[in-house]
Design a protein around this nucleic acid. Sequence first.
DNA 1: ACACTCTCAAATTTTACTTCA
DNA 2: CTTGAAGTAAAATTTGAGAGT
Length: 371
Amino acid sequence: MDLALSLGEKSKAPLTFLDKIQPQKTRFEKVSLGFCMGLGEPHISRTGSRSKGEEEEEEEKSGSSDPPVQLDLLPVAPVQRNIQPPSHMIPFPWLTANLLGEPGPSHKAAGREVEVNRGRSLAAEEGEDGGVQHSSPNSTVSSLIQNMDHRRGYNCRRESEMTSLLVVLNNHDQAVETGQRGHVSNSNSRARSTDDQDDEEDIINGLNRKKLRLSKEQSAFLEDSFKEHKTLNPKQKLALAKQLNLRPRQVEVWFQNRRARTKLKQTEVDCEYLKKWCETLTEENRRLQKEVQELRALKTSQPFYMQLPATTLTMCPSCERVASTATANATTATTTNVDASTGTKSRSYPFTTSQTEAQAQTQIQQARSLD
DNA sequence: ACACTCTCAAATTTTACTTCA
DNA sequence: CTTGAAGTAAAATTTGAGAGT
């Protein structure tokens, strides 16, 4: 794919292939500043392995190659647009009104529902059938550029996006010319995987990839697969993609998102648990503070323990809470209490007022060990 | 050591879909 | 019943980092 971008006068496009473009007088030619873009049919083999002869052969099969197109976008100039039918009426929304208006092989697809999730593969088949493979570039160019901008393989960093895009494309052309299709070395471009090449093919095919909802069956299958393994190796990914008729990249993304969802859910569960635990600890702390206050009050107001009636210190083994209860009749028998919050049973351990707090604590420890 | 490829997590954006007034 | 706004879930993208070659 030959793509040239230039800012300024349209005739100053730096790429040589633009020379092939028929000089077209535009209505806006007098405007000196604009955005010029050229789009030409690739001279490259999409697989990179085919010989020039094969390419020519294919070119012959598909008929004459589309002429390169130059598009001039001007800042505030009123651009006359073709009125397009609503997208839902177009079986292939990425097709242009021009193309739909023309009788041709692509019309075979018109009126046929596209199986949504088969996007690429179906489209590829259509392309092989002489279908939509090279849709009219005119109105797809802007969306193509938009997509191109987001492509991983042509990932443009914030600075000098367009410049880097040009460099990438230039390098790409050079690589192709030297028969080195594949990796394009550029500091601003990301590493390109086979999926990226896959994506690039889609761009070449003129497919404006939309977000696709996976079918229930596909989701269920992926879920089952996710239960087996949270990550995929390349083989598994390819197999799944093939089985589900998805692109490997889609499978990869699904697993990434699935992992993220799992983690988020787990975080929410953990958060809820910690929240409850925190509430419990706060409540227990409050009770203990109260207990300490009671004991201190007891100690200061009643220095002569012997004069006091027996006090029963109650400890709940589950929450290890100690409560002092002054009883008129001290008893040595243990009583059973039920903790309303936990529903666990606890026993009351009698202490006499003659015991010091330290002694009481010792008894508590003993009681704990008994329980 | 360096460049490159691949994969992943995290954050974010985009979009299809649902709910509700 | 229709419509549009708001909300949501999920697909997709971006970015940065680490591991392996």
